[in-house]
Amino acid sequence: MSATEADGALAGLHVLVTRPAHQAEPLCAALTAEGALPVRFPVLEILDPVDSGPLLAVIDRLDEYDIAVFVSPNAVVKAMNLIMARRTLPPTLQFAAVGRVSAKELRRFIGRDADIFPPRKFDSEALLEQPALQQVAGKRIIIFRGGGGREHLGNVLKERGAQVDYAEAYRRGRPRADVDVLLRAWARGEVDIIAVTSGEGLRNLFDMVGKLGQHWLRKTPLVVVHERMAQLAEELGFKEPPVVAAEASDAAIVEAIRQWHKKRT
């Protein structure tokens, strides 16, 4: 361990990082910079749609839409890579992002800030509060999302009079994992807190670890990124209420863990 790691605010703390493998490194690096010891255990993998035909068809007629909404960073990356490879961006299309990380990814592709995104809370409810989405009667809106995503955003926009279509830019799968490695880490006391960033990820983790692992899991502190996930954790039988980070960004997760660790030491 380096001197920086030894002196960090999270020195020696074992944090189970459950982000998909291709997205875990920035969070692991941020934790390591604070002295924590990340334990990588992906509970989701991001896959292409089984049939990309409907997504490509939407991209080809993107000029028909007034607003394109991206519900996650994965939706941005998967959809925008295809859009940029296939066509030019419609000049009148407005871009909306649910969260700060999604907005940051959009900026990378379009070279400017998204037209619509919440300045503080980062969920569908906060996006729906934005002035640009209040008077949408007659507007055509395309929502880029993962397979089986929440319907709330689209339903509310339809209630406001918009014509809403969905485009599934990716699907989520459950990766194969060596659960024995995680069980041994628990037995050695090397899982102090778990960071999970979606309800589906939490359910996957619960199922992946099996009966024995669930015994350890329910006793392990949890940091999540939305109150809905805290409710799910309660339903799954977690002993302690989860720590809820301000948003799903790496910085917010690290800060939530830092505050939790400070209170218990």
Rank of each mutant, 00 (worst) to 15 (best):
S2G: 13
S2Y: 14
E5L: 07
A6I: 15
D7P: 11
D7S: 15
A9Q: 11
L10F: 08
G12R: 01
L13Y: 00
T18R: 01
T18C: 00
T18D: 00
A21N: 03
Q23I: 04
L27G: 08
L27M: 10
E34A: 05
L37Q: 15
P38I: 04
P38D: 06
P38L: 07
L44N: 03
I46F: 06
L47E: 12
V50L: 14
D51T: 04
I59A: 06
D60E: 13
D60Y: 02
L62R: 00
L62G: 04
E64R: 14
I67P: 08
V69C: 06
V71F: 05
V71Y: 05
S72G: 03
A75Q: 10
I83T: 08
I83F: 06
R86Q: 09
L89D: 00
P91I: 03
P91R: 07
T92F: 08
A96I: 08
A97D: 05
K104A: 15
R107C: 11
R108K: 02
F109L: 01
F109S: 01
I110A: 00
D113W: 01
A114Y: 06
F117M: 14
P119D: 14
K121P: 12
L127A: 06
L127I: 09
L128A: 09
Q130G: 00
Q134W: 03
K139Y: 04
R140I: 05
I143E: 02
G148R: 06
R150E: 03
R150Y: 04
E151M: 08
H152Q: 11
G161C: 08
A162C: 08
V164E: 00
Y166E: 07
Y166H: 10
R171L: 04
R172E: 13
R172S: 15
G173K: 08
G173I: 08
R174D: 02
R174I: 12
R174W: 02
P175I: 04
A177W: 01
D178G: 03
D180S: 15
L183T: 03
G189V: 13
I193R: 09
V196W: 03
V196G: 01
T197V: 09
E200T: 11
G201H: 00
L202R: 04
N204F: 03
L205P: 09
M208P: 04
K211N: 11
H215T: 05
W216F: 14
L217P: 02
K219E: 12
T220S: 11
T220R: 04
P221H: 10
P221F: 05
L222W: 01
V223A: 14
V224G: 05
R228G: 04
R228C: 02
A233S: 03
L236C: 11
E240L: 15
A245E: 12
A245V: 11
A245R: 10
A245Q: 10
E247M: 11
D250N: 12
A251I: 11
I253G: 03
E255H: 07
H261R: 15
K262V: 15
K263W: 07
R264A: 11
R264M: 13
